[in-house]
């Protein structure tokens, strides 16, 4: 993918209202892989006692990152929508730290893209969550 195309993709993806509302930033896009970051924000807290981010915010980041990976695959001609998504939460994200999500589309057919992803905080060897999903492949 040309740097120009990746830049346009980043502009388009970061303009998605829900991604914008959650402050998601696209770090990597292309060849079936995507990477996003989401900064810590007190509005996203799910457990007021500990300040840990809500699982729903992590799910939104995972859905966005996995969907973008499906979109970035060279065999995907057009749009995509989530068919299913499973998230496993290994541990609470450390309050105050940015969450990074990485996803790869490891297989694609004419109609379905298969994607897996993981989310990390400041400790990249110890994922916060993993995700597996299937996404529709839509004609342009």
């Amino acid at each position: 993918m040309t740097p120009d195309k990746a830049k346009r993709a980043a502009q388009f993806i970061e303009a998605v209202p829900h991604a914008k509302a959650l402050g998601m930033k696209l770090v990597k896009f292309g060849d079936g892989e995507a990477e996003f970051t989401m900064g810590y924000d007190i509005r996203f807290i799910g457990d007021p006692e500990t300040g840990v981010i809500h699982g729903g915010a992590v799910s939104a980041l995972m859905d966005m990152c996995c969907g973008t990976a499906a979109l970035s695959h060279p065999d995907n001609p057009g749009g995509t929508a989530t068919i299913d998504l499973r998230i496993d939460y290994m541990r609470p994200a450390t309050p105050g730290q940015t969450i990074t999500a990485k996803a790869e589309c490891y297989h694609i057919t004419r109609s379905v893209a298969f994607v897996r992803g993981r989310a990390m905080d400041g400790d990249p060897d110890n994922p916060v969550a993993t995700a597996t999903g299937t996404f529709s492949v839509e004609a342009k």
Partner: peptide
């Protein structure tokens, strides 16, 4: 709606 918003809901 964003799939992530639906997921969180």
């Amino acid at each position: 709606l964003h799939g992530g918003a639906t997921a969180a809901f």
